[in-house]
Design a protein around this nucleic acid. Structure first.
Lengths: 356, 356
DNA sequence: CTGAAAGCGCTTACAG
DNA sequence: CTGAAAGCGCTTACAG
């Protein structure tokens, strides 16, 4: 038998009272005289009483655990997310069980099932791109882009893109290359769409999708950014600090000085953004706030279930939607445009990138 | 009442057998005729039966959950670790509950307690630097440096340092600057110690500890690496890819070409290592293997407890110790020394950096 | 091969 | 204000 401290019965016995009374005293729901209650609490404390979650769960039907499912834990943003959620959940008295769906959508469903089998009360899912999460039989909060149907909480990526675009615009950039890893991602589309919108019609934007495939050693993995620079692009705006690093590094190596000759921007404020020379101008999500909102929404839903009769269904769509602002972090990788460019009246109208 | 599928009793009832029989059939422990067993399994499947972990936990005293406590989830290596552990654990039928101790040692103990209260069967802790984990009342596997007392599983950081040092040595580097974030970390000391040992007596090594404090905007956060280069250092070996990035970036910006003029190496093979130009030569841990060993050790211990009488105590020290080799990933940031340096017979003997 | 019964630790009506 | 009792869903000896 593993470590199991004293149970309710032991402490009841040692005080000559009933377990019901001990339970009532400890849960502080009144019904027990102040004097006895104090005595019980003291003894429980002394005996190092720790309630059995199993017993409680069996009785109440609640495990006090929230599941966190991630499309891919290896996501560099994951630490921030997990930390924020773990914090918010434990503040609220909940534990966090993780499940990683390592890419594939089928695995995502498996991950969800695993969590469900463990009896999580609710879950937070950060879905794989383009995946749709239906009703799951427990409250679900989706953290994704506001453009994702069923999204519950998220940073406002479009708004953030707008701010980033405006920053670039104010610096005089009129020809910017947009870099992202794929157009299936709502998050990325929103970010880029916002940037493009803020830059306005007088600006020329091109989008370069960077494949995720890792190049072999020796193989050329250049993005040809120097060529874009030569064509007059003065800013390279990306959907992630990782891409920004790639751009920054490639440009620098090609002898283009950042930020005096070209500006580079990222997203997410990863640790690396503070460590490059120059440090990256980026956009930070308020993850703690997002996590707090997601957890709060879930718990409210749970409490509702307690009181009311059966909810019609716990599809994520019904969850309260909330958007959290992102914060522009201006560091050293952006600067005013120095070279004077001929104004190029190029009409650009990228397909399907309008805000939903 | 939240989502609760059919219980054992429902399926027993619908088949006109006892719950005991259903339980026996489903757990596959024999005792039930093949024919009935098959019928039961089929019905359970059809009815979408999912066993209640709470009931099982209450009865067996096991939750089937392993706790994962991290010194700081925001650690860039965390994704790899968490992913590997989640995978190993779920393969073994266990769930993973996370707890973050956000730095402070006191919070580390709190995080552990939180997990204990949730009734985890065992835990894996990646301790904060210089922290010591005592007996906890449940099996514990420590993942740290082998130099840490009580360590259970880890990469062999010294060995890895040796390999990295040898790589540099073979390239002709005899004057290398070592960069790490602090000497309290056994992991870092091991890595650097190994590098130094491989470089041997003829090499000159200096160590530069990089404070973790973040510089304000505008503030100079240069490490003065160009100065070291000027003094004849040809290689910059760091304890982490993040530091390597910082070195690479600073050197490049100072106009020093990598790898033709100086080599830079990292550790951990973070995502960023593949994205810089040149890409970083680094050292990869076999996290899946480490996770697998840690989980396996824990489960063996748990099974032992099942059979044998009370274990004397579950201090981590008793856990099987295992070292996992790291793998050198040679990419483009290292190259043979080109400038010819006068041989400098400088005696170096840094204090307290010997292998324990 | 199958089933009746006990019990894991808790909480919650319900009496007293 | 306090306690006896039921029951959450499971598994495991123990009978039959």
């Amino acid at each position: 038998m593993p470590r199991s401290g004293p149970r309710l019965s032991r402490i009841a016995q040692s005080l000559g009272v009933s377990v019901a009374t001990v339970s009532n005293a400890l849960s502080g729901k009144g019904r027990v005289s102040a004097e006895l209650s104090a005595r019980i609490k003291k003894t429980a404390e002394e005996m190092g009483y720790v309630p059995s979650q199993a017993g409680r769960a069996l009785r109440t039907g609640r495990t006090g655990v929230i599941g966190l499912v991630l499309a891919d834990i290896a996501n560099p943003l994951f630490p921030q997310i997990a930390q924020a959620i773990e914090f918010a959940a434990s503040e609220a008295g909940y534990g966090v069980l993780i499940a990683d769906s390592r890419g594939a959508s089928s695995l995502q469903m498996e991950a969800i099932d695993r969590l469900l089998e463990r009896g999580v009360d609710a879950m937070i899912v950060i879905p794989r791109r383009g995946t749709r999460i239906g009703a799951l039989g427990c409250p679900v909060a989706l953290i994704d882009s506001p453009s994702t149907p069923g999204n519950s909480v998220s940073a406002d990526h479009w708004e953030a893109g707008l701010a980033m675009g405006q920053h670039l615009r104010e610096l005089g950039h009129r020809k910017v290359l947009l870099l992202g890893s794929g157009s299936e991602s709502n998050v990325q589309n929103d970010r880029l769409g916002g940037i493009r919108a803020a830059l306005g019609k007088e600006a020329v934007c091109e989008t370069l999708w960077i494949a995720h495939r890792k190049p072999r050693n020796g193989e050329d993995f250049s993005l040809g950014l120097a060529g874009y620079y030569a064509r007059g692009f003065t800013a390279f705006a990306t959907t992630s600090d990782l891409h920004a690093l790639r751009a920054l590094s490639e440009l620098q190596r090609a002898g283009i000085s950042i930020p005096s000759q070209a500006s580079v921007t990222g997203f997410d404020d990863l640790a690396l953004a503070e460590v490059t020379s120059p440090r990256l101008t980026t956009m930070r999500m308020d993850m703690p706030r997002i996590a707090e909102l997601a957890v709060k929404a879930l718990i409210e839903r749970l409490d509702l279930q307690d009181v009311g009769e059966r909810m019609p269904s716990s599809s994520p769509v019904e969850a309260a939607q909330a958007k959290v602002a992102m914060q522009l972090v201006v560091r050293d990788s952006t600067a005013p445009v120095t070279r004077s460019l001929p104004y190029q009246a190029i009409q650009e109208n990228p397909a399907g990138e309008l805000r939903p």
